[in-house]
């Protein structure tokens, strides 16, 4: 690539990116240093020393269930999946360049909707915002997002990737390309393009 489309984009720092909102962890001051020991659940009330009916213990119950709790795939999870994709031009992620933004991810039906089962068709719409309106790589970025989501989501998810309205001078063209299954499949056959995509997805955990 001889010249860069956008040589000087705005880059966000990692702390500015949206993350799953967690409550501030409990304070661990010097006065509280023995709290964990004092309120620890006694060993006789944990498996295998107690059977079946595990007795409840006031303090430890709060964080016990969280690991096994059901949490549907939400916008933040989609964001976490695609915001780490590298930009084809710059060594930073799409999230840091604000190409991918949390408010531009839409899931229908919304997560937590009652009655949604593993066989319900769910549509994920991601609107990509190129850093400049004439970005020639918008289609590549869109394709990267699409490939990443296809690799990560279960089969009942339908993925739609579009350019955000008015963010690109030729957004209808780009959208058409990204929506065309045949063209997407053909693009993935192209070795050069495949190489670019692999490089972009290398940084995804």
């Amino acid at each position: 690539m001889a010249t860069l489309d956008n040589a000087n984009p705005t880059i966000l720092s990692a702390s500015q990116l949206p993350t799953r909102q967690q409550r501030i962890p409990l304070r661990t001051g010097p006065d509280l240093k023995y709290n964990d020991i004092i309120f620890e659940k006694p060993s006789y009330l944990s498996r295998p020393f107690c059977d079946g009916q595990v007795a409840s213990w006031p303090r430890s119950d709060a964080n016990d269930g969280s690991l096994a709790a059901a949490e549907p795939i939400d916008e933040q999870e989609i964001y976490d999946l695609i915001s780490t994709i590298s930009d084809p031009e710059h060594p930073v992620s799409l999230g840091q360049l604000s190409v991918i933004n949390l408010p531009d991810i839409h899931i229908t039906p919304a997560p937590h909707t009652p009655g949604v089962g593993p066989n319900t068709i769910i549509t994920v719409l991601v609107e990509v915002t190129p850093t400049i309106t004439h970005c020639s790589l918008a289609t590549v970025i869109g394709l990267g997002v699409r490939v990443r989501l296809e690799q990560c989501l279960p089969p009942n998810y339908r993925i739609v990737v579009r350019c955000k309205e008015n963010s690109h001078s030729q957004d209808d063209q780009v959208n058409k390309q990204l929506g065309d299954k045949e063209r997407v499949a053909a693009a993935l056959e192209n070795d050069t393009l495949k190489g670019v995509l692999d490089k972009m997805l290398e940084t995804c955990a």
Binding site: A70, E77, C152, P154, P155
Partner: peptide, 21 residues
């Protein structure tokens, strides 16, 4: 593994994606 990527538990989904890759 593709189906497991839709598991209700988040950590399971994460492991499923890693295994799938």
């Amino acid at each position: 593994l593709t189906l497991a990527c839709g598991n209700p538990v988040r950590n399971v989904r994460k492991l499923a994606r890693a295994a799938r890759a």
